[in-house]
Amino acid sequence: MNNKHVAVIGGGIAGMEAASVLARQGLKVTLIEKQANTGGKLNDWDHLFPDFSSPEVLVNSLATKTKDSGVNTVYNTEISRIERAGKRFELRANQDARFYADAVLVASGFNVFDATIKEEYGYGLFGNVITSVDFEKRMKKHGQLHTIQGTDPKRVAIIHCVGSRDAKVGNTYCSKVCCITGIKQAIEISEMLPDCEVFCFYMDLRLYGSKFDSLYLQAQKRHKIQFIRGRLSEAAERADKSIQIKAEDTLQGRPLRMTVDMVILLVGMEPGASTSQLIQKNQMTVDENGFLKSANVHCARNQSTQEGIFMAGTAICPMAVNETIENARSATTEIIHFFENRRP
């Protein structure tokens, strides 16, 4: 098995974790990252749920692990094709670079939903409508949240399910991590600006993680975050740049109007942009949501529909950081089994 070569596509947390585990098992591993550094989308993130820890620490420790285990990392290289070449695979990159591998692990991640498609929410039109990703970027860069006028917001609305569970934008699935991200960001705003009222507008609160519900309770009890069960119908800018929002207070069965200083849209996860390219010239397929399809959702989650190509992380479906890392490890087990069971 030691002479076997695995190519890992994507240097986010799934790719780094899987690559380092495989390398420690004695395999030759090439980690191919399209950007100039590894870490992926977490490089823009300020704090993680549910413990408010720093993603930087996590990314750095994964980078060290990757390096120390002898993974060969290639930067600025985007894979566009995975083709079978005999018993091996040939990977083609954008600038004519080619890689050969006995197995491939696709850890190409997700795309963030483009909130400008949800036009009635005014993202890109009104300066005080931002996304959850913008919030993290601002917090990381400036450590504070200001309105476009430069003032401290006195009232903020956090909108759940933007680009998720919405047939109108073509995504009917749940992105899973947004509910808890919203609660985390609500708590952060409240800690930073104690006088600021924070409202979460939700359809269902899906707090599946073991520590998530305690964060919900904490948000209500300690931070007085208010939760309104109703989906935003529209956002409009007022003369003073504040935002008027409308929703139904579904529990009362009445329409509701509220003026807020800022709106934060909890944008969901979509299939990665490279997914459609990566499934060409091989037997890989996508599921009904456009994410890479597993051979079996229960017992072969990391196996694609093409033998020899494996998958890890959010290329399969929306996942939280800890799940992504666990999922990457499970992918390595499947790859090792693949080599062990394969006849020479």
Partner: peptide
Amino acid sequence: ASRQIDFD
């Protein structure tokens, strides 16, 4: 008049 809940 309005049936709307006026939060403001």
